[in-house]
Amino acid sequence: MTEIRTEMAGNVWKILVGRGEEVKAGQELVILESMKMEIPVEAAQSGVVKEVLTEEGSFVDEGQVLMTFEE
């Protein structure tokens, strides 16, 4: 199981994938909004989304887990 963590603090602007969805390495999973910038969060490897642990509009701190997925 892989955890997708944020690299910087910000607000969750868009969640682009849902539970059970197959994702490819490099695919954008979530877009954060921080420092007025859109911050895409990408999948490091391919896999299937197991759980989405945040929702659009919520604040996330650096290092927080956004979703988990299985390879």
């Binding site: 910087m8 921080s34 420092m35 910038m37 859109e38 911050i39 895409p40």
Partner: peptide
């Protein structure tokens, strides 16, 4: 690099 952390300096 705006693709990473919005290009913000850390």
């Amino acid at each position: 690099q705006p693709k990473q952390k919005g290009g913000v300096l850390f």
